[in-house]
Design a protein around this nucleic acid. Structure first.
Lengths: 353, 353
DNA sequence: CGACGTTATGCAAACGTGTGAGAAAATCCC
DNA sequence: GGGATTTTCTCACACGTTTGCATAACGTCG
């Protein structure tokens, strides 16, 4: 075998090989299985030889190959993380939490963008399967329902963060949308607002449905009438929000406050209002959802509902760890949302223009 | 062997195993090496059997194990990406570009946060080595010089993005800092500013040095005097920038414009100026660097220098692909910076208060 | 009909690690 | 001192794939 290696080194390029278990077995003058055990601190090996072997291993910078180990143990100690786009500030913070937890437990994160593109999604799933990941976290504000079944086909634990499609059988970490938007809307009501608009996401997404329902419950709780014309829809991004805001401003009696599905939407709203010469919050109040980093730097700083994104990532990963160790953690973990009051919300004008 | 498997399935848990090459070999009634070749479209296999095998493989949802393949080919088709924090909007976009390129070429991204923490950095390097990644990209605005040598020890191609430590032997993708800040400063000069401050990063980082040098060259080019008191330092984040701004405002003759090391710094500056009742750009102009997403949403929208982050990630990855295929791409790729003029820069007041 | 190419397939050795079974050595007990 | 027991180590197989080499099948030609 040694000879083989030599020959290879001569005939082909002198391809570099990391030092293997055999190399140190030779140096330590024991069989390589003894080395394997010694490095795992197996009780089968005497302290003396174990220490000798460990010393040699340390000195020659030996690190066991995770791929060889993965082959025999059938555990790769990797987890796949699917995101729509890692450039999205929401998901990148969730991933930050996931990665930290992974690192602490000896797992590595394999990252894959889906771009909400079905083709890409298929490739991602394939890649995860071929890599034999031990678990999967899906973090995407708008995940295609399409590939959840594909993912589940590979018989691997899956945890979803802010799952948009209710009724799935999978495990998930979710923000308390209803409570959060209830508080946000109540905040506006307490300030004295009576005509509060809701600028939502596209229909069908669970988070939109839930945030809308919190809004409605707040209105009901204050015995305020629900005015359908005050509910408009965007797509969770700023551009569409601008158009939606303008439609609200065209109403005979425009709202005195706008509660937005998320901060990106609120950004568009702020911009549209500014373009119309309206001053926030004097003329009109705006409240967002997410508490993105940017929310405290807008003009004025945005009142919004905080999602503890990093923590959500952490929780998702902890849940996945439990699943992978065969336990059965609670199906749906929910995380409380926290209202953050800044300067974009204030009492309405006494006499509406 | 078959028998062995059975026994295992009986004695231990009926552990799920993905279908392997042997399973389809049995179904197709050929040896498993024939299957391997057939799936690689090897010319050694007749069309007829190849097609038969491929059909069976497709039907049974077979996907070759990347870990087994990696063991024999000594290529894992994975690349490690180190970032200080994936939650940083700068790096997350770079990673977005890297990931796309990876995906297109059949590579997977293993992500690791270093948090600029030496301990963590060590662990990251170890993990990458154990995983036998084929290449590494380091994307971090402030990478610890510490572990570059560690990384290079593992004999794997490395590409750095916006490397902060000049004189390394490695390959890198860099923004044209000098040109960018030259243009930014010239822009302010052309608007009529004479007292332009530079609010830099900590000393020693290459990008700070370069951006400062662009600033100086612009001054020199316009025959403006260099005033040392107009140069102050932060740490690339907003908080420190606030303090630095206040020190500038305390000067007997404060600047009429501030050129900032990056957008996060500029955010702090905007906030500090606002706190002092100064209006941007009427009272004072502010220019940033990076063109983060947030830059167009500040008040007023920020004039800044754009770094094509996504593209830089892509270029880094392409460079790495070349390196891995044995080619020797250009050592240092530089990318042009682009001045984006928004509303935070304007001519100075005629008569300085 | 046999030698000889061709072509298609199978065999077996790797890759680097984990691990059960068993051999060898050391220790203990009576 | 001999057998039982414990300790320490080695053997050999397995994980799922790639791949060089041997070989079987088959047709062709002399």
């Amino acid at each position: 075998m040694l000879f083989c290696k030599r020959v290879q080194n001569i005939t082909t390029d002198p391809v570099y090989r990391p030092t293997s278990i055999k190399d140190i077995a030779r140096k330590a003058n024991v069989s390589f299985s003894t080395v394997s055990r010694a490095l795992q601190n197996s009780p089968l090996i005497s302290r003396r030889t174990a220490e000798k072997i460990q010393k040699i291993a340390r000195e020659s910078g030996y690190r066991a190959s995770a791929v060889a180990r993965g082959l025999v143990t059938q555990k790769t100690k990797t987890i796949g993380v699917v995101v729509t786009s890692i450039a999205d500030p929401f998901v990148s913070e969730v991933v930050d939490g996931i990665e930290e937890c992974c690192n602490d437990h000896g797992y590595s994160v394999i990252l894959a963008n889906s771009n909400a593109d079905p083709d890409r999604e298929r490739k991602v799933v394939q890649a995860f399967y071929e890599r034999r990941v031990d678990g999967i976290v899906v973090t995407s504000s708008r995940v295609g329902a399409l590939y959840i079944p594909l993912l589940s086909e590979m018989r691997v634990p899956i945890v979803l963060v802010n799952n948009q499609h209710p009724g799935e059988f999978v495990h998930s970490v979710m923000i308390e949308n209803v409570q959060g938007s209830l508080e946000a809307t109540n905040h506006l009501i307490q300030l004295g607002h009576r005509r509060i608009a809701y600028l939502g996401d596209r229909f069908g997404h669970q988070s939109d449905t839930e945030r809308f329902s919190g809004y409605r419950r707040a209105l009901d709780g204050a015995a305020l009438p629900f005015v359908p014309e005050l509910v408009v829809h965007g797509d969770g991004k700023s551009e569409k929000a601008i158009a939606a805001t303008e439609s609200l401003l065209r109403l005979k009696e425009p709202p005195t406050a706008i509660f937005c599905y998320n901060d990106m939407t609120a950004l568009g709203v702020l911009r549209a209002l500014q373009a119309h010469g309206l001053v926030v919050p004097t003329d009109i109040s705006v409240v967002g959802f997410d508490d993105l980093f940017i929310a405290s730097y807008t003009n004025p700083p945005l009142t919004t509902v905080r999602q503890p994104r990093r923590r959500m990532g952490l929780l998702a990963m902890e849940s996945l760890l439990h699943l992978m160790s065969g336990q059965n953690p609670s199906q749906a973990i929910t995380v409380a949302a926290e209202l953050v009051i800044r300067e974009s919300s204030a009492p309405p004008r006494k006499s509406p223009k």
